[in-house]
Structure formats: C-alpha cells, structure tokens
C-alpha cells in the first residue's frame, strides 16, 4: 500500500533555487504592475503582488480561483519563471510575486482553503529578504532564506512582519498535489531547520515574568475585566518597561493559554 501523505506544518524542500535569473527578471517588472493585495482586512503597510500564473477566474490575478491556470504576459516575457517552476514537478495553479514593503505587517490569519487533504500545496521561494523579517507559523518563526523553497501549511495561523527599510519579495506558488512534489516535501521535512521563537514572543515572555513577580504591575493589570482595555494596558506597560511586542503576540499567547486549559484532559492522558 502506498504511504499516505500527511502535510507537515512546514518543510524545506531539497531543492537549490538559483535566484539570480529571477532577481534580474524581477528588476524588469514595471512598478505599475504591482497591485495591492485583495485581503485588505489583514495587513498594514504595503502588501502587493504581481500575478505570473493565475486561475482564469481570479479577479485581478491575485485572488484564488477554480479556473484553468493561465500564464500572464509578464510570465511569458521571462524564461526565468518557467525555469524556476519546472523542478516542482506539479501542476501549478497559481504563481505570484508577493511584496511586503518596509514596516508592513500581515496580521495573524488562517487560509482555510488550503486545509483539506486535496487542497493545493503552497510553496514559498524567498527572492529578496533580510534577517529581521519574521514569518510566524503557529507562533514560531519559519527561518526561510533566499535560495530555498518551502512548503507551508497556511491553513494554520500565520502572520508576517517586515521591520526596517527593505522590501521582502517571495515567489508564492500553489501546486496541485503530485506524487513527486509530495515526495520532495516528505524528504525535506526531517532536515528542515527548527522553527524559532519570535522576538515579540520572547519580549512578551520577559514581560510576563516581570509582571507575575511584581505586585504593583500585577495590580494595574488585574484591574481590567474588559479584554480590549486590558490588552491596551499590557501593550502600554510593556513598552514602558522596554519589552517590544505586538497585539498579535498578546492575542496568540492568550489563545495558547486558553487552548491549554480547554485541552487539559488530552494533556493529562498523553
């Protein structure tokens, strides 16, 4: 019997990606081709994209769709793109360049359309990035580097922050699950570098330790029974004590603690 493929949370594929031809092609894309991302609820700053291959029914080329994949003129103009997709050995349903501008932030969300066993497999090929970018999956930083190709299960909670002054651009590819691609994901999973705690979560942890040990801080936080004003106070007091973390860091930590309590019976029998 063939082994059943189960999606790992993420995996670095055993593929070496030559970014040089893609970076050259990228430089030739006119500024006007970049369109703002459709999902305006979930980000702040510049999050925009260029469609290279898009489902025929995708609005503006960046949204998901069920139609036939259609290569765009920008894709056809540069052999670098097809050369990059060939080793994936799967039907490509969409390929987009996604750009996150300096200071931009994508808030935590789940792409539920990627969550079923037959869903497309989403791959990230970082083209331009820098060490301060944090791509968090399940609250942990995925250490993606330019020149690598990663599978990410983005039906799990994820968010991205690009602090500093440089843009971050990934080639994001949705593939139909093929045996070859699934085999690459499975082969890459064991050697995938461990996910790391984010700077924000470490800062929040430091603040949490300070609060539980400090009766005055504790009292000012205990005074809040309303969730939003409580979180505002946490953020303000955190900043005041030089702990830099975001509202998403706080929300993620609260969700994690809630789950731990709700799942206590499972924890106990484990």
């Amino acid at each position: 019997m063939a082994e059943v493929f189960t999606r790992p949370p993420c995996a670095r594929l055993p593929l070496a990606v030559d970014t040089a031809p893609m970076l050259a092609a990228l430089a030739r894309i006119p500024d006007a081709a970049w369109q703002p991302h459709f999902n305006t609820e979930y980000f702040s700053g510049d999050w925009s994209g260029v469609a290279l291959i898009a489902p025929a029914d995708a609005q503006g080329g960046l949204t998901p769709g069920q139609g036939e994949p259609v290569p765009t003129a920008l894709y056809q103009a540069e052999p670098a793109w097809s050369a990059a997709l060939a080793p994936l050995d799967a039907v490509v349903r969409s390929a987009r360049l996604l750009r996150l501008g300096p200071g931009a932030c994508i808030r935590e969300h789940c792409d539920y359309d990627l969550g079923s066993p037959d869903s497309d497999l989403r791959l990230h090929l970082p083209l331009l990035s820098h060490p301060d970018v944090e791509f968090l999956l399940d609250g942990l930083v995925v250490p993606m580097l330019a020149g690598e190709c990663w599978f990410l299960d983005l039906s799990r909670p994820h968010r991205v922050h690009n602090p500093g002054t440089q843009v971050r651009i990934h080639l994001v590819v949705d593939c139909r699950p093929s045996p070859a691609l699934q085999a690459m994901i499975a082969a890459g999973a064991p050697a995938t570098p461990a996910l790391q705690p984010s700077r924000g979560s470490l800062a929040l942890q430091a603040f949490q330790q300070q609060v539980v040990a400090d009766a005055t801080l504790r009292a000012s936080l205990l005074a809040h029974s309303e969730r939003d004003t409580f979180i505002d106070t946490v953020l303000a007091l955190g900043r005041q004590h030089q702990h830099l973390f975001s509202r998403d860091d706080v929300l993620a930590a609260m969700r994690q603690q809630r789950q731990r309590w709700q799942q206590r019976y499972m924890v106990q029998s484990a």
């Binding site: 949490q208 205990l222 809040h224 029974s225 309303e226 706080v250 609260m254």
Partner: peptide
Amino acid sequence: STDSVLQLPFNQLFRR
C-alpha cells in the same frame, strides 16, 4: 471555579 477566574483577562495572559 477555575473557569470563573480564567474569565479575568489577566489570567488569560499571566498564568504561571
């Protein structure tokens, strides 16, 4: 009782 004290936002973030 635990459910009750966990209603307090403090206990949703600063458990030990």
